[in-house]
Design a protein around this nucleic acid. Structure first.
Lengths: 215, 215, 215, 215
DNA sequence: TATGAATGAGAATTCATTCAT
DNA sequence: GATGAATGAATTCTCATTCAT
């Protein structure tokens, strides 16, 4: 039964908690840690500000849970990736598409990671779940690179970490900096045509970086 | 005589203003707009908090000036770029190096642009100087791309905007997200060797994307 | 049980709000809008300054409520006036007495209206309750004037608005300007004998203005 | 030579002082003592805020001078009144007209007196010039009343102080409370027709109060 | 489970005023 | 005579959080 279908019970702690969590995610995404306001979260969660503290203890605690949440979601999504069923080049493109799509569809990830970096990853480092958050994709990429190399399609000497960073960078930077870039470049980077173009170009850049004979 | 050496006069408005400006740049870089504190700025500028308002009117006004400042500095640096004296491939690499170095040496640029994007470029859009900030480098890249194409070194169909975004992305993302990436990847991305490696890899990615026969 | 006798409960929001309201009324009466101080209000209301904002949002909001309050109180008092049961001349005098007494016993009305006029009725005009505040007494006076005319006691051609203004003026001016008048005239206008004399003279002035054969 | 004709000298202390004085008068009129702002005075006087202190020492000092100024001006105007040349009834009307006109043409008097009463005449009482400010008009009215009584035109038992207060009240209240009255009565009391009507009615009220056979 | 009341510490900003030239 | 620089003490208002029920 989806959230929408479930009859709204008068007292439904789980639902309240979830609403607060969702509201907080939005709030932290849009305003960062310091700019986030408890009252706005409460309003959006249709509850009293008091409840926020009841369920999450403190702004810090709430932020940490939200932050861990977005990383967990990413990891979950990453785990569902199955690159092995595709031949190397296709798998590489598939991976790029996955990253791009994920960022595009999860502005809360971008917002929170931005906020976190503004604070030198203060909260992330304090998180007890740090080790659970270490991304599995680098491992996947290593396997993929080996496969591609063996098949004679991928170049030698490509570092999985670096490749991951490059792929992430091309998508993340574009989406995270849309606002300033749009202002500075004088065009609307969120226009569908622009998004499409960027995705294509990025994929091409990665392909050329990795594959021996790319278009 | 440098700022530090100059005997501190009691009344030196320019110096006071400059100290406040510098302190504010640091503060906004580290904490973003919402997280920045007026008293910290005053302490670092060795003046009373009151002076901040005397010279800049408001937190908003100060932030805007600082923001405009970092864009102006970037533009100034960009204008000193002279790609025409180099042959295309070298010029391309030179451009990459410039971007990378600039970001590396100007954490305040990264911090402020991050902060600004967290707020949907709220302040940037309000800035009267927006048009002065439009970057000249896309134009430079266009010229360079034409040159390279004519010389048979660069591929066809490379968009200058996209190329600029790609180059910026590879540097900016790495540096802006060092903190979270270090945590998630489990290595210290600020280590000199890592920085060096990333710079090399990025340059290679760009070269392969642009040049017909890249290593 | 009166307010003073009631055991002071720790949590009694209505009482807290009422104390703040009363304290604010006093403060605005004595110092006007600009001169009023939040901390003094808090002290007098025996609560923290914070509570003022908790209940009224802002100095402006508090002032507006207080202002609306004094007009509401006046209107309430006015509505309890029953001039119809008296013959015209007596009713006229009764009305004069009512106005005089009201002003005399409600320095907060005088103070706030003064403050408001100093600010060109800035707040009053912004009040959403403006139409509720339109005074009913002009209507009462119209009825009374018609009755008196019909009875052959009152003169023709007396405008109810003007009559109201005259009656109000004679009382308001005296009380609102006691301080400067006392200084300028060199006598204490608040002395009971002076108050009594003024009331008598004012009533006489009004009677002579309205009645065909006045003493 | 008028202010406008006089060539604006670079250094003209008298002129500067006068500009500040005029600006302050306006500022205190519109905002009262507490609401007045030094910077606004400086802007209007086309000088630096510093000059205000140079010439007048403090906000208090400036206010006191301005306050004394408006009383002095009134006294000066009052002294130019010559009621003796007119027959009693005409002189009475002339006096009423004078008061009404003065208030109408000198909003700064009304504003400052209002402000002063809001503060319980704090500054007026401190003024060393208080005795110089005692109004001469009560004396004039006494003479006039005697004349009128002797001529059989005026009633017996009219107190000069009370008469003065009544005349002042009818004009002052109307003008000082225009803003709130306009709001509460739902008409624009500053409209020329309204002003004219009020002046006529007021004069009539006074005439009826004083003269044995009034219209 | 839920909530309204209450709060202290601190944030931004303002204001009258003085310092140094 | 004139001025820009500087300031301390308020003043309004906000924020995260706890109390009492």
């Amino acid at each position: 039964m989806s959230d929408a279908e479930r009859p709204r019970r008068r007292r439904d702690p789980e639902a309240t908690r979830a609403r607060i969590f969702a509201a907080a995610t939005q709030e932290f995404t849009r305003h960062g840690y310091a700019g986030a306001r408890g009252d706005r979260i409460a309003v959006r969660a249709r509850c009293s500000e008091r409840m926020v503290y009841y369920y999450f203890g403190s702004k810090d605690g709430l932020y940490r849970e939200v932050l861990e949440g977005v990383y967990e979601s990413l990891r979950l999504a990453e785990q569902s990736l199955d690159l092995d069923r595709l031949e190397p080049r296709a798998a590489l493109i598939e991976f790029c598409r996955f990253v791009w799509r994920y960022y595009l569809e999860h502005p809360e990830f971008i917002g929170l990671v931005n906020s976190e970096n503004l604070q030198q990853a203060r909260h992330l480092r304090k998180s007890g779940k740090l080790d659970e958050l270490v991304t599995p994709v680098v491992g996947m990429l290593e396997v993929l690179l080996a496969r591609g190399r063996a098949a004679g399609v991928f170049r030698d000497g490509i570092d999985a970490n670096e490749l991951y960073i490059a792929i992430a960078a091309l998508g993340y930077f574009y989406l995270s900096n849309t606002h300033t870039l749009s202002a500075v470049l004088g065009r609307d980077l969120r226009a569908p045509a622009q998004l499409e173009q960027h995705w294509r170009q990025s994929a091409l850049v990665v392909e050329r970086a990795v594959c021996i004979d790319a278009a």
